[in-house]
Amino acid sequence: MRVLAAMSGGVDSAVAAARAVEAGHEVIGVHLALSATPGTLRTGARGCCSKEDAGDARRAADVLGIPFYVWDFADRFKEDVIDDFVAAYAAGETPNPCLRCNEKIKFSALADRAQALGFDAVVTGHYAQLSDGVLRRAVDADKDQSYVLAVLTAGQLSRAMFPIGDTPKPRIRDEAAERGLAVANKPDSHDICFIPSGDTRAFLGAKIGVRPGAVVDTDGKKLADHDGVHGFTIGQRKGLGLAGPAADGKPRYVTGIDPDSGTVRVGSAEDLRVWTIDAERAIWTSGSAPDGPIECVAQVRAHGGTAAAVAEAVDGGLVVRLREPLTGVARGQAVVLYRADPLGDEVIGSGTISGTGQVEASRVGSEANAGRTR
C-alpha cells in the first residue's frame, strides 16, 4: 500500500514509520507544522511541533530512506483545536485537545489530503491496536491511547494504521536504537502541546480575559471571588481561593460550574459522585449505533476513571448508567465505552459529556432523567 506516515519528531512515530517500511509499504513521511510561530527548541519534554521536532522527523526519514515533507496545518489547528479548547473552557467545560486533534487534524484534514493524493492509509505512532476495523487498547497499558482515538469513525479507522500498539514502550526505544534513529532516547512530550509552559490557567486568562464571578458552597453562600470560570474544572481541589477547608474540616472540591452567572460551586468529595452520564455527538466504531442497551466499561479520562456500566444510544447521543460511581466527571470530557468482556480492550464508541446525574443506576430504571445536572 501507499501510506503517509505522520512523523511528529518523536520516537513512537519514527518507529511506526520504520515498521511500515519494513512491512513493504510505499511510505512518505510528513511532519505537521501546527504553530504559526514554532519555538526553536522545546523546553525539556514540554510541548511539541517545534523546529527541533521537525528536524528530528526529517533526520528519521533520512535514516529510513523515505521522502519527507512538512505540511502547514497551523490555521486549521488553531481553528479546530486551540479555538475550540478556549471556547470550551469559557463555557465551563473541560475539553481534551488530543481528542480534537485526532478527530479534526490527523484523521480528518491530514487523512483527507492523503486520500486526495492517492494514499491508502495514514500511519501514526499512537499506542493502540487496530484489526479488521476493531480499535483495541495497546499492549502497554501505561501508554494506551485508545481513549483519545475513540472519536474516530469507522471510515477514518479503515484508513488508519497503528503499527506500535502491540509493543511496550521500552521495547520501542530499544528498536529505535537498533535502527539507528537518533530519537531513541528523546523525552516524551507531555501536557498540552500548544501550552509548552504548562500553565493552562495563564494561557486561558490571556485568551479569555477577566470575567469575575463567585465561588459558593452547596447552600449558595458566597465564599470567594474569582476572575473567570476558565480557571476551574470539576473535581479541582487546589487553587480555589478559599481560606481553608469546610466547617467539618474536610477538603472542598469544585462540583459545579455555571458559565452564564460565573458561579463556581464547591462541595464535598461525596458531592462529586455521579451515577449517570449524558453525552452528545456519539460515535460508534462499528459505524452504527447498537439496537438497545449494552453492557460495557465506561472511561472518562485518558488514564483511569473507569466503571462498569450500561449504555444506550439516544437521539444522536448516548446515556450511560454506571454500576459504580465515578468522580471528577466534567462536561466537555469524552466518555469512551469498551466492550464488557474478559479482555475489556475493544472500543465500542464515545460521546462528549453534556451532563451528569447523581441518582444511583440501580434506582434509575426508565426514569433516567431524574437527578440530572447540566
Rank of each mutant, 00 (worst) to 15 (best):
L32N: 01
V297K: 09
T327R: 15
S131V: 13
L204S: 02
R173H: 10
G24E: 04
P187G: 05
P95S: 01
S197W: 02
Q236M: 08
G209I: 04
P38S: 00
P97R: 10
A176H: 03
P168L: 02
R46L: 10
V359Q: 11
V359C: 10
F85W: 06
V347S: 00
S286R: 13
A243K: 12
A87I: 07
V21T: 06
F85D: 04
V215C: 03
G205F: 02
V216Q: 09
A74D: 10
A61P: 04
V266G: 00
W71L: 11
A111L: 12
V329C: 06
T263A: 10
E346H: 00
P95L: 03
A206H: 13
C193A: 13
G228V: 02
A243L: 14
A289K: 03
Y338V: 03
I82L: 11
I283D: 06
G165N: 07
V229E: 04
T327V: 14
G241E: 04
D315V: 06
S146R: 03
T153A: 04
R58T: 05
N102A: 03
V30Y: 04
V319N: 10
G328D: 03
R179G: 09
H25L: 09
E360W: 05
V27H: 06
I28Y: 12
R273P: 10
G344M: 02
T124K: 02
R171T: 15
H303F: 11
F73G: 03
